[in-house]
Simulated scan of single mutants.
Amino acid sequence: MKAYLEEIAAQIKDMEPVEAIAYLAELFPGQITFSTSFGWEDQVITDMIFKNDLPVKVFTLETGRLFPETYYVWNRTLEIYQKPIHAYHPDAIALEELVLKKGPNSFYESVENRKQCCNIRKIVPLKRALAGNKCWVTGIRAEQSLNRTDMANLEWDEQNQLLKFHPIFFWTLDEVKAYIRKNNIVYNTLHDKGFPSIGCAPCTRAVREGEDFRAGRWWWEDQSKKECGLHATK
């Protein structure tokens, strides 16, 4: 697997993001997908895929707890590009049981409860979304958090058994914003209010000056590792 990964990485090393996505789409026809949560980075990649008619399936995880601003961006993106965005929802029975036993906001009570909620609303639906695919495209950037700096823009996802490609991994936030301005891309206005990372509404707050990029996610927990499991590296 290492040699295979290195071979593909060498092929796309000097390619621009659109060119690299197109190459991978040709390499894995019908088996490449992109996950969007409608943040800055994801809107940039969505524009690249839709504007260039790249054969990449775009999907999102509809947790049921998203911000109104996120739903607005989702709807406007559909209107602008006239392309499908597939939504994956949590299993209704599992969610009903969780809320019945622990209430709607149990994630505040313990890390275990929070991870259980993330698993039902995000991890399990993600498994369904990725099933049958060989390449997963994401909007991850290296500077987003400390535990992402040792990642590569192309990696093997052991958890999901597929290649994972981050086309704008080496971009700075200023480059992301510049692309959005230049191409007049609709984006989540929460970004203008101190929300660099936007997830479920009950679990996301604005970041104060001097705080880490992901300090606004699950802020009531230990700040050492701010991931829900979608992009687990170990």
Rank of each mutant, 00 (worst) to 15 (best):
M1K: 06
A3C: 08
E6N: 13
E6C: 09
E6V: 04
E7L: 09
A10K: 09
M15N: 01
E16S: 04
V18K: 13
E19H: 07
A20H: 03
A22E: 08
Y23E: 04
L24V: 13
P29W: 02
Q31W: 00
T33W: 06
T33Q: 10
S35K: 00
S35H: 01
S37L: 05
W40G: 07
Q43G: 08
V44Y: 05
F50P: 01
K51W: 00
N52R: 09
D53C: 05
P55Q: 13
K57M: 13
F59P: 01
T60M: 11
T60R: 03
T63S: 15
G64H: 03
L66K: 03
P68S: 14
E69A: 15
Y72D: 09
Y72E: 11
N75Q: 15
N75T: 15
N75L: 14
R76H: 08
E79G: 13
I80W: 12
Q82C: 10
K83I: 11
P84R: 05
Y88A: 15
Y88D: 13
P90V: 01
I93L: 15
A94H: 02
V99S: 03
V99W: 04
L100S: 12
L100D: 11
G103R: 10
N105F: 11
N105G: 02
N105R: 09
V111Q: 11
V111R: 07
V111A: 12
N113W: 14
N113E: 15
N113Q: 14
K115N: 11
N119I: 10
I120V: 08
R121I: 04
R121V: 05
I123S: 00
P125W: 01
L126Q: 02
A129N: 01
L130P: 05
A131W: 11
N133V: 03
N133K: 10
K134G: 06
W136E: 06
W136C: 03
V137N: 09
T138C: 02
A142Y: 12
N147P: 08
R148T: 10
R148H: 13
T149M: 15
M151V: 10
N153V: 02
D157A: 09
Q159Y: 09
N160C: 07
L163H: 02
L163T: 07
L163N: 01
H166L: 09
F169I: 06
T172R: 12
K177I: 12
A178F: 05
N183R: 15
N184Q: 15
I185L: 12
V186E: 06
Y187E: 07
N188W: 04
N188K: 08
T189R: 10
H191W: 07
H191G: 04
K193T: 13
S197F: 00
S197E: 00
G199N: 07
C200E: 05
T204K: 01
T204P: 01
V207T: 15
V207H: 09
D212L: 09
D212I: 04
F213S: 14
G216A: 02
W218D: 02
S224K: 06
K226D: 06
C228D: 04
H231I: 12
A232N: 10
A232Q: 13
K234M: 06
